[in-house]
């Protein structure tokens, strides 16, 4: 037994506390599951929070239709393994219904319209709480998130009117139609997440590890070649050994050149990287406040 709890132990205890609060305060709490490492860590913590009982949350996946094949395989295997219910919200269905419109132009992607599908899913499934792997160190607007983040009936975040959160008293009171986003690993950094994954032996999708992959160079990062992107003039697919630091829609998630093909080598690499992990996400580069704008509109 360790006498002095480590920083990771403290972060874990805090996250477990928050997850239990979400369960206690909401009627239909769920986990927003992207297949990325942060939502995998939240799911792992949720299992730990309720053991020896099973995980009492459904996992919600917003499917843009532009997926890495590995993400879907991992998702299906993972929900089976932990015995959770899976709820899928399909962006393609929203487009077909006409509630979401595909962005036009060469920079168009499905990142923004995910919010539409997410809100439709919340409505359909009567979800009143979505737990996510958002961390305050990711981005400037996220640095101001509460653990329990209130969303109005339109799914909007009002950063200037957030409820004060004192000690560990989280206020999940809401009006009908409103919901909450809950962020159990708010206080974790990217480094903490990686160290925790190693400590707990958590399995990750192979995309996080370096392997030869077909890519093109676009907007300062290596974009994977897939059926969902069209090559522009001058773009030539080549094979590079790359890995991904975050996993999102395949059309906008750029990889980095790397030889790190094991957990230890990834951790060693992250320790020396001097670029924040969202730096390779095309969606955040549009303007100085793009994340804030999307969050106000209901983006996770």
């Amino acid at each position: 037994m360790k006498e002095q709890p480590s920083f990771l132990d403290e972060l874990e205890a805090e996250a477990i506390f928050v997850i239990r609060e979400a369960y206690a305060q909401f009627e239909r709490p769920t986990i927003l599951f992207s297949g990325g490492k942060d939502s995998i860590v939240v799911s792992h913590l949720a299992q730990k929070a309720f053991a020896p009982a099973g995980i009492p949350f459904a996992l919600v996946h917003v499917d843009t239709g532009h997926n890495f094949a590995e993400t879907l395989e991992f998702r299906d295997r993972y929900v089976k393994q932990i015995g959770a219910e899976l709820i899928v919200g399909s962006v393609q269905d929203s487009i077909n219904r006409g509630t979401a419109q595909e962005e036009q132009g060469p920079l168009g992607n499905r990142n923004r319209i995910q919010s539409v599908t997410l809100l439709e899913t919340i409505d359909r499934e009567r979800i009143d709480c979505l737990m996510g792997g958002g961390r305050r160190d990711e981005e400037k607007a996220r640095a101001k998130e509460r653990f329990f983040s209130h969303r109005d009936a339109f799914g909007q975040w009002d950063p200037k009117n957030q409820r004060p959160e004192l000690w560990n008293l989280f206020n999940g009171a809401k009006q009908p139609g409103e919901h909450f986003r809950v962020f159990p690993i708010s206080n974790w950094t990217e480094m903490n997440v990686w160290h925790y994954i190693r400590q707990e032996g958590i399995e990750l999708p192979s995309l996080y590890f370096a392997a030869p992959r077909q890519v093109i160079w676009r907007n300062g990062s290596w974009l994977p070649v897939s059926d969902f992107i069209s090559l522009r003039a001058g773009e030539v697919p080549i094979t590079k050994t790359i890995r991904f630091r975050t996993l999102g829609d395949i059309t906008i998630t750029g990889g980095i050149e790397s030889d790190a093909d094991t957990l230890d080598s990834v951790i060693a690499e992250v320790e020396t990287l001097r670029q924040t992990e969202r730096g390779n996400r095309e969606d955040d580069k549009r303007s100085e406040s793009s994340m804030e704008e999307r969050k106000k509109q209901g983006y996770f």
Partner: peptide
């Protein structure tokens, strides 16, 4: 972090670092 803060030049909410 927030847009209004950058415009007004003051900090208007708790930001965690």
């Amino acid at each position: 972090g927030l847009k209004d803060e950058r415009e007004q030049g003051i900090t208007i909410d708790v930001a965690y670092r």
